[in-house]
Design a protein around this nucleic acid. Structure first.
Length: 417
RNA sequence: GCGGCCAUGGUGUAGUGGUAACACAGCAGAUUGUGGAUCUGUUAUUACGGGUUCAAUUCCCGUUGGCCGCCCCA
């Protein structure tokens, strides 16, 4: 094989596209129900758009971005996620202002240079929403409800919603100190990675899966206990709204997200049906990002769902219900003249909205029938020399094998009714 | 970036140090103008490069890729 897809990318083939289309349609519909409107931003941006928003110390920025100079030497980057792009677009087009509530959604490919693994690719697809202009806890709850509804409509089961609050600029530093103080004495017992995290971002220690680290993590102080009054009130109202909306959730005070811009509410939906990469969706509030990117102070919240992971689950559940791509009519012909007439009828059928096809490989009638069968054609119209004289031919129902004589003129009316 | 496992026709799988087996799919045919059943025939330089050997698909090394885990995240 001379050419192959680049590592970590995949072709989505015709057998799978119906499933993808179902997922995409369901996303659009569900987001629409919650009054989100679609936004489409470029697939690459000036590198700064991502480095400044996602954070210089995150893995994404440090080692996972596809960054390249264009012909004029500008540094561009394939988007590793879409929130930064949406903020940039919203600011540039004056859609994000303190007084305007903006609800947008997006759908599309993202790029991260990582080692491929189950549920992890270098090009992958996300569907996400962002809401700007409100710090209302009800909005946080609505967004979590939206993500749950989305997966419900997609038909996913066995999901768990985890939520936490990571505090804000004011109270998070104190919590970091508290964590450092706690881990300091046990530093020698932690794994090498955690010792690094201790310096760079102690919050991430909470995420460590090493068994011997977990012993210490369990006893570590929780962010929830270190929130300032406002963050605490916000979090309890989010939880209150979730209860009111009957959304099931689990407070997970060890939940930490990997992007630097999150504040207050952080949430994740994980599936028990996936491997190590088990999050189907993650998101949270980012009240400082808009200002950091040059806008006024505008609170915001969003989440993104990983579509490959949804596909993986739906395939495993084989719940895709074989969304078949059948055609309505196949026109089988014998001889050149019949083919010309057949092609004419084919055109008319298509004009009437009937999906239809004809042979292009010079096949025998038998082989044409076989081809029609494989295409799942509901009907085959068989035209030969005799039929040309009578302007009438046999229409065969491929399901029942019934045949009846139908004139050229009547053919389409049979389908219309 | 690190570790483990793996790499045979379109697909899924056998197998052996001496030039590849099976299933399914595909194509062609089994009386002349008709599909889905059956039968027959047909479809592979055994990922790439190098090494050991009289001889490698089978052994060794490297490369590339895949899967799984770490990391990280969706």
């Amino acid at each position: 094989m001379k050419y192959a897809v680049p590592r970590g990318t995949k072709d989505i083939l015709p057998d799978d596209t119906p499933l993808w289309q179902f997922i995409e349609d369901t996303c659009r519909e569900t987001f629409g129900l919650f009054n989100y409107r679609e936004i489409r931003t470029p697939i690459f941006e000036a590198t700064d758009v991502f480095t400044r928003s996602i954070g210089y110390t995150t893995d994404i920025v440090k080692k996972e971005m596809y960054t390249f100079p264009d012909r004029k030497g500008r540094s561009l980057t394939l988007r590793p996620e879409a929130t930064a792009s949406v903020v940039r677009a919203g600011l540039e087009n004056n859609l994000i202002t303190p007084d305007n509530l903006l609800k947008v959604y997006y759908l599309g490919p993202m790029f991260r240079y990582e080692r491929p693994q189950a549920g992890r690719q270098r090009q992958f697809h996300q569907a996400g929403v962002e809401a700007f202009g409100s710090a209302d806890p009800a909005l946080d709850a609505e967004m979590i409800q939206l993500s749950v509804k989305l997966f419900e409509r997609l038909g996913l089961k066995e999901l768990e919603v985890d939520i936490n609050s990571v505090g804000c600029k004011k109270c998070q530093p104190a919590y970091r100190e508290a964590l450092k103080k706690y881990f300091e004495s046990n530093l020698a017992n932690l794994c090498g990675d955690c010792r690094q995290r201790f310096e760079l971002n102690p919050l991430r220690i909470l995420d460590c899966k090493e068994a011997h680290c977990r012993k210490y993590i369990e006893q570590a102080p929780a962010m929830v206990d270190h929130l300032d009054a406002e963050c605490k009130a916000h979090f309890s109202q989010v939880v209150g709204w979730l209860d009111h909306l009957l959304v099931k959730y689990k407070i997970n005070d060890r939940l930490v997200r990997g992007l630097d811009y999150y504040t207050r509410t952080a949430f994740e939906i994980v599936s028990k049906q996936l491997g190590a990469q088990n999050a189907v969706c993650g998101g949270g509030r980012y009240d400082d990002l808009v200002e950091e990117m040059g806008g006024k102070s505008v609170p915001a919240i969003g989440f993104a769902a990983g579509l490959e992971r949804v596909v993986e689950i739906l395939k495993a559940e084989s719940r895709q219900s074989k969304i078949e791509n059948r055609i309505g009519l196949f026109i089988a012909t014998i001889g050149d003249e019949a083919r010309q007439v057949g092609f004419h009828l084919l055109t008319k059928a298509r004009e009437k909205g009937i999906s239809a096809d004809i042979d292009f490989q010079g096949k025998s009638l038998k082989a044409q029938m076989k081809a029609a069968d494989r295409l799942g054609a509901r009907y085959v119209y068989i035209i030969g020399d005799d039929e040309l004289k009578n302007k009438s031919a046999v229409l065969k129902n491929m399901g029942t094998a019934e045949q009846k004589e139908v004139s050229f003129g009547e053919l389409l009316s049979v389908f219309v009714k």
